[in-house]
Every structure is written in structure tokens, then in C-alpha cells.
Simulated assay, not measured.
Amino acid sequence: MEQLDPRARSDIYGRRINRTSSPLRRRSVPYASIMLGSVLPVLLMADLMPLLPSLGFLMLLGWRMVRPGVLPLWAGAPLGAFDDLFSGQPFGSAILLWSLAMIAIELIETRFPWRDFWHDWFAASLLALTYWSAALVISGAPLTPEMFAVAAPQAALAVLLYPMIARLVAWLDRFRLSRARTID
């Protein structure tokens, strides 16, 4: 068996030790995924309202619940402004609601640091339903029973989508922290 030069052997294994991910990827993936989630419901639009719930808001909840330290507390304001541009809501509604949601999640994290997935799902569902009802009130549309009946599937879908959003956020977080492959 041929003996490798020690410097060549350390070079082979040295590339895998102390590897770091791309700083651009570490910083941009959470924001880009939330912004993409804000744009997607526009693609499936019914006559009056989108068929999907606010995926951007659900992605924000997912990132904040799955990876609490990634997004700063103030991130709700600029991401909410981006969502307001695409959602059709009055400008400033998502800024306010997303900022309040970030503060509420921060309070939940300080009060219950030992939470698990079920607590996160319950908290995200409660926040999503609160966001849904507040967005209906802020929209300026007449609040009739028919409006609630048409919008109720969005609320149910928001509650049911959170586990998939959390799984997607976990996958995106692994991608965010992975080392970019280099061609040798």
C-alpha cells in the first residue's frame, strides 16, 4: 500500500474540517423564503381573495419558532411591508400585525423556553387565526357571514399547513448552514 505524503493527507481531510457556510446564504435564505411565501398566494387568486393563507406570515412564524435566533425582533416591519405590497391589504396592516406577532413570539419564548413542537403548533395556530381575523377586519370589506364562510378555509389551511412549514424551514435551515460544494 502506497503511503501518502502527510501534507497531501492533511489537505484532503483539511477541507472537511472547520468548514463554514456562505455568509450570503446564511443571511439571505430566511428572508428570501419569507418573501417568496408572500408572493405565492398571489398566484392562486380567486375573485375577491387568495385561496391560500398568508404563506409569508406562516414562514415568518416557522423561522421564528424553529430557529428563534435567526430573525431579529424588528424583522417583522420590513417583511410585513414587502407582504403589504403583494397581498392587497391596506399598506401598513402587515407591518403592524407581523411586528405584533414577533413581539408575541418573543414573549412566548421568554415565558415558555421548554416548549416542544405541539406548543409551537398551538402558538402558531393561535397567531395565524388572530392574524387572519385581524386582516379581515383591517381589509375594509363588509364583515358578513358569507365573507367569513368564504375565508374560513384559509384559516383552517393555515392551521394545517404549519407542520409542513416547520419541516420546510428545518430543511431550508440545513441548506442555509451547509457548505457550498467547491470544484477542486
Rank of each mutant, 00 (worst) to 15 (best):
D5I: 01
P6R: 02
P6I: 00
R7C: 04
R9W: 14
D11Q: 15
I12E: 14
I12L: 15
I12T: 13
Y13R: 11
Y13I: 11
G14Y: 04
I17R: 10
T20P: 12
S22V: 03
P23R: 12
P23M: 09
P23V: 10
P23N: 10
L24Y: 01
R25G: 05
R27G: 05
A32E: 03
L36N: 08
G37S: 03
S38N: 10
S38D: 07
V39E: 08
V39A: 12
P41T: 04
P41I: 01
P41W: 01
L43M: 02
L43Q: 05
L44I: 10
M45R: 15
A46L: 15
A46M: 13
A46P: 12
D47N: 15
M49A: 15
P50V: 02
L51R: 14
S54N: 10
L55F: 00
L55R: 02
L55Y: 03
G56R: 02
F57K: 01
L58C: 03
M59P: 01
L61S: 04
W63A: 01
W63Y: 06
M65V: 00
R67C: 11
P68D: 09
V70H: 07
L73T: 10
W74L: 14
W74T: 12
G76F: 08
G76R: 08
G76N: 06
A77K: 10
L79M: 05
G80Q: 08
D83E: 12
L85D: 03
L85V: 00
F86L: 11
F86W: 10
S87H: 08
G88E: 00
G88F: 03
Q89I: 11
P90C: 03
F91D: 04
F91C: 06
I95M: 08
L96N: 06
S99P: 04
S99E: 03
E106W: 07
E106S: 13
I108L: 13
T110L: 13
R111K: 15
F117D: 14
W118A: 10
W118S: 10
W118Y: 14
H119N: 12
F122L: 09
A123D: 00
A123N: 03
A124S: 03
A124W: 02
L127M: 05
L127K: 04
A128G: 02
A128W: 07
L129S: 08
T130G: 12
T130H: 05
S133E: 09
S133A: 14
A134G: 03
A134T: 09
A134F: 09
A135L: 12
A135Y: 09
L136P: 02
I138V: 12
S139W: 07
S139P: 03
G140V: 06
A141K: 11
A141N: 11
A141P: 06
L143C: 02
T144E: 04
T144G: 02
P145Y: 07
M147S: 13
M147F: 14
F148K: 11
F148M: 12
V150I: 11
A151I: 04
A152M: 14
A152C: 09
A152G: 08
Q154S: 05
A155S: 04
A155C: 07
L157A: 11
A158Q: 02
A158E: 05
A158D: 06
V159E: 02
V159M: 07
L160H: 05
L160N: 01
L161V: 02
P163V: 01
P163H: 03
P163I: 00
M164R: 14
I165C: 02
A166W: 07
A166N: 08
A170K: 10
L172D: 06
D173Y: 01
F175W: 10
R179T: 14
A180V: 10
R181G: 13
D184F: 15
